[in-house]
Write a protein that binds this DNA or RNA. Structure first.
Length: 487
RNA sequence: GCCCCCGUCGUCUAGUGGUUAGGACACCAGGUUUUCAACCUGAUAACAGGGGUUCGAUUCCCCUCGGGGGUACCA
């Protein structure tokens, strides 16, 4: 059975790949990898109105960034193409005709206006809004004549109106639907394009899809799809309706909710492996206490049976935590490479590898996202202006602060420029401080603020090593100037 | 309105017919320390409610309530 596993990710090109889509694609991909199956990308571009130019390229780029490579797709023929539904119109047409011929579908000539009116009347009477089946009673030959004469028509499925349809969902178990409440849905639009209902079923069958993974929002239309399979005499694939990803308010995560585009996360400096790790846990859980998974571990552990039923709120705090940890785990040299663009943005010269390495080590523990690097490193390149008051420790005053800074300056001057390593500086300073008989913090706080130009920063000696003797002393002089001016 | 899904800490979740209901994030406190971050330790925090079934229900069943999704010539 492993060899036959074929899954597909079938986005509509209506915008960027969003978090929910990424998770669906990830689950598809994990399943395919785990069972040595085939992962297919199919573009469901049957709605010309909603199509957004360039989004197919964007979706492909986002998948590539995430590392979710597909075996078949728009630019990767696997013998089941074309992979754009807009290029398969004749296929849908033929299948719709087949249903028509077998009396499993019918032409409908109702105008959108009439449909809308019917809906309003039904709602006014507190009835379920659904098609009143006016055209269902038209004779097939008569309807065909009208359609061929060019009259605007759609094709609807001719549902039984009674009985039930059972879906055996891999995640939810059996779900029963009554045909009495099902609408005769449109399968072919008047513009000659199919609706999702038809195209999805026809393509999944023709592309030999074995498992359909899709969000829970599709659950209500599943009976229609199942009916279509029966109408065609096909075996339906296995279905798994994934729990929704929710916004903090509890509703379906949508474009209105903060960042949902994969690109936004990429551009904000989230690591793909961290995003994937995070997203994998939205609705899935390995049933162990392990929370950090490499992609290979994910492939090993992933099982549809472990996917939850309830929706999962997208929690940015957790993503941040995971991303920070992935950053900290990364070898510094690899991190340096990733950080270069951000360093450049704040004019940190990127030609001095050794220095870059030191800077990276300095900020590594403080990074949540790669984009934080610029802000964290900026003070090392050029001094920031600050209020001289912050130089004075909580339990200190200006006079003693000036004194301490002068002492620091003195100590600096006694160290050879070539010996400005954090270890040397540490040893030298600590010796001097104890010789001076003052509290460590009394010396180090003002010094650190003088060097960093901010109340919170990495440690004195790390900073000094990167700054070098000359710059470090210059910054202390500046600090002294600020204090003297304000006295 | 109608159809469908779901319901364990604030959030992501583990779990069992008898458990001190476990972990993670966030939050709070302490430690480390020259500050921040990181790291370590600890604390607070949950079985929606009501009926059953049972010696015993968070767990099984029913109802209620709550939340969500769908209800298009959108996907």
């Amino acid at each position: 059975m492993d060899k036959e596993l074929r899954v597909r990710f079938a986005p509509s090109p209506t915008g960027n790949l969003h978090i929910g889509g990424l998770r669906t694609a990830l689950f598809d991909w994990l399943l395919a990898k785990k069972h040595k199956g085939c992962f297919i990308l199919r573009i469901e571009d049957t709605d010309q109105q909603r199509e957004v130019k360039g989004s197919v390229d964007g979706i492909i780029e986002a998948l590539r960034w995430a590392g979710l490579d597909y075996d078949e797709g728009p630019d990767k023929d696997g013998g089941h193409g074309p992979y754009f539904q807009s290029q398969r119109l004749d296929i849908y047409h033929d299948h719709a005709q087949r249903l028509l011929a077998e009396d499993k579908a019918y032409y409908c000539f109702c105008s959108p206006e009439r449909l809308e009116k019917v809906r309003q009347q039904q709602q006014a009477q507190k009835l379920a809004p659904r098609y009143d089946q006016l055209c269902r009673s038209l004779s097939a030959s008569e309807a065909k004549k009208k359609a061929e004469a060019g009259e605007n028509a759609v094709i609807r499925m001719k549902l039984p109106g009674q009985g039930t349809q059972r879906l055996r969902d891999l995640i939810r178990g059996d779900v029963d639907f009554s045909f009495a409440t099902q609408d005769d849905a449109v399968i072919m639009k008047s513009d000659g394009f199919p609706t999702y209902q038809l195209a999805n079923v026809v393509d999944d069958h023709l592309m030999e899809i074995s498992h359909v993974l899709r969000a829970e929002e599709w659950l209500p239309s599943a009976p229609k799809h199942l009916w279509l399979y029966q109408a065609f005499g096909w075996e339906a694939p296995l279905y798994a309706h994934l729990p929704l990803i929710l916004n903090p308010a509890g509703g379906k995560l949508s474009k209105r909710d903060a960042a949902v585009s994969v690109f936004e996360y990429r551009d904000q400096g989230y690591l793909p492996e961290a995003l994937l790790n995070f997203v994998a846990f939205l609705g899935w859980n390995p049933k162990t206490e392990q929370e950090f998974f490499t992609i290979d571990e994910l492939i090993q552990s992933f099982e549809l049976e472990k996917v939850n039923k309830a929706g999962a709120v997208f929690n940015i705090d957790k993503l941040n935590h995971i991303n920070g940890r992935y950053i900290r785990q990364m070898p510094t040299s690899a991190l340096v490479e990733k950080l270069k663009p951000y360093f450049q943005s704040v004019s940190v010269p990127t030609d001095d590898e050794a220095r870059l390495h030191k800077i990276t080590e300095l900020i590594k523990d403080r990074l949540v996202k790669l984009t934080d690097a610029g802000d964290l490193a900026a003070f090392l390149v050029s001094p920031i202006d600050y209020d001289g008051d912050i130089l004075v420790p909580k339990k200190g005053n200006k006079e003693t602060t000036i004194e301490r800074l002068k002492q620091s300056l003195q100590i600096f001057s006694e160290i050879e420029a070539g010996d400005y390593t954090k270890e040397n500086l540490y040893n030298f300073f600590l010796n001097k401080i104890s010789a001076l008989g003052v509290k460590t913090g009394e010396i180090l706080w003002p010094l650190r603020v003088a060097l960093a130009g901010q109340a919170n920063s990495p440690g004195v000696f790390e900073i000094t090593e990167i700054l070098g003797k000359e710059e470090a002393m210059k910054r202390v002089e500046t600090a002294l100037g600020k204090l003297n001016d304000s006295i």
